[in-house]
């Protein structure tokens, strides 16, 4: 067992974990943060994407011990503490960017990383920025629209 200290969605945790425990299992099974789903479990689909120290990562491809000392944000850490949606979450809702919703947490976390690097992306840049995240329902059209809408809102907020 290895002792880790990690901050998840603003809450500090200390836990003893087996080195082989994956970050996604730590989040879901130990902390009960089931907003981050497990999709393919092979690093391909992006459903389990979270932020680790400010960058998007696939939490099925990170060990919990590698997150020791780090700061993790899951989709559950977005928005206001009272339950309000953040701009990406709201845009996904308003643009109907989901059907079954399984890919949505990962899409939103990947889109956050994309907009941080490129606050004003073209539709093509959005598609490339999300190429590590698979959606089997929507055909991606409304997901791209949602990310562009959130980007516009971010631009307006800055001007």
């Amino acid at each position: 067992m290895n002792r880790i200290s990690v901050t998840v969605d603003g809450v500090a945790y200390q836990d003893d974990v087996e080195p082989r425990l994956l970050l996604v299992h730590y989040l879901r099974d130990r902390l009960g943060l089931t907003g981050t789903p497990i999709g393919c479990d092979t690093g391909s689909c992006g459903a389990c994407t979270v932020e680790l120290d400010g960058r998007s990562v696939k939490s099925c491809s990170v060990l919990a011990v590698q997150a020791d000392g780090g700061e993790v944000t899951t989709v559950q850490g977005l928005g206001a503490p009272t339950g309000g949606l953040d701009s990406l979450q709201r845009a996904f809702h308003e643009k109907h960017a989901l059907q079954c919703g399984y890919c949505t947490p990962g899409m939103i976390m990947a889109a956050r990383d994309l907009l941080r690097e490129n606050p004003d992306p073209t539709p093509d840049e959005v598609r490339h920025g999300l190429e590590g995240n698979l959606c089997r329902c929507t055909g991606y059209q409304n997901i791209v629209q949602a990310v562009l809408a959130a980007a516009r809102e971010g631009q307006e907020a800055r001007t």
Partner: peptide, 9 residues
């Protein structure tokens, strides 16, 4: 190489 999240790690 792969995708942005993989390139971050």
């Amino acid at each position: 190489v792969a995708d942005p999240a993989v390139r971050n790690r």
